Simulated assay, not measured.
Amino acid sequence: MTDATSRDGTRSGSTAQPVGGAKGPDELRRQIEQTRGELGDTVEELAGKADVKGRAKARAADLKDRAGAMTVHLRGSAGHTVRGGAGRADPPSRRARHAVRAGLGHPRAVLVAGAAAGVAVAASLARRHRHGPC
């Protein structure tokens, strides 16, 4: 039975050594230590991937940090908007016009909101009719 050399420079058979082989006991020890180090790194990497609970905690902490940063950003931009309007709120008529324009752009949403409001009013009237005025 003959040993064949593969593409990566190892021989197939009972002993898989590089083609060059160790030049002596010191070289062999160095190769063993290098292989042990690589094996240790691989085991640590696999253990990290197998630690689902730890990975989930790390992901949750990352998302929490990102949410906190987004909150700070949104609060800053909201404060900028108020200051940009010279500190005054829009009068009710302007807000109403803005709501009507937004509603014209989304008629289905207005229809759903109107239906929900109608159901709420009908339920309130039915309750009053049964129990009398409160």
Rank of each mutant, 00 (worst) to 15 (best):
Q31N: 12
D26R: 01
D41R: 01
R66P: 04
R59S: 12
R128S: 00
T81W: 00
A89N: 04
Q31C: 08
S124W: 11
A109Y: 01
A109R: 09
L125W: 07
S93D: 13
C134S: 08
G40D: 06
R11T: 06
V72N: 01
A115N: 12
V19W: 10
A89I: 06
A56W: 14
E45C: 02
D62A: 09
V52R: 12
A113F: 01
G79N: 08
M1T: 14
T42Q: 13
T15E: 10
R75W: 05
T42F: 09
R66E: 08
E38M: 04
R101C: 14
L46K: 14
A16T: 06
G79Y: 02
A22T: 08
T2P: 15
R59N: 13
V19Y: 12
V119K: 13
R97V: 03
R59K: 14
R128V: 01
T10W: 00
D3Y: 09
D90T: 08
L28Y: 15
T35E: 12
A78G: 04
V72K: 06
T10D: 01
E45N: 05
R29M: 15
A67S: 05
P18T: 15
H98Q: 05
A58P: 08
G85F: 03
Q34G: 02
S6G: 11
G40V: 03
P133T: 06
S6P: 05
S77T: 07
V72F: 01
L63I: 07
E27D: 12
G20C: 13
P92F: 07
V112T: 15
A58K: 00
G48P: 09
A117G: 03
R59E: 15
Q34F: 04
D8V: 05
H73Q: 00
E27I: 10
S93A: 12
G79I: 01
E45T: 06
R59F: 01
L104H: 03
A99P: 05
G48V: 03
A96V: 10
L74C: 04
S6W: 02
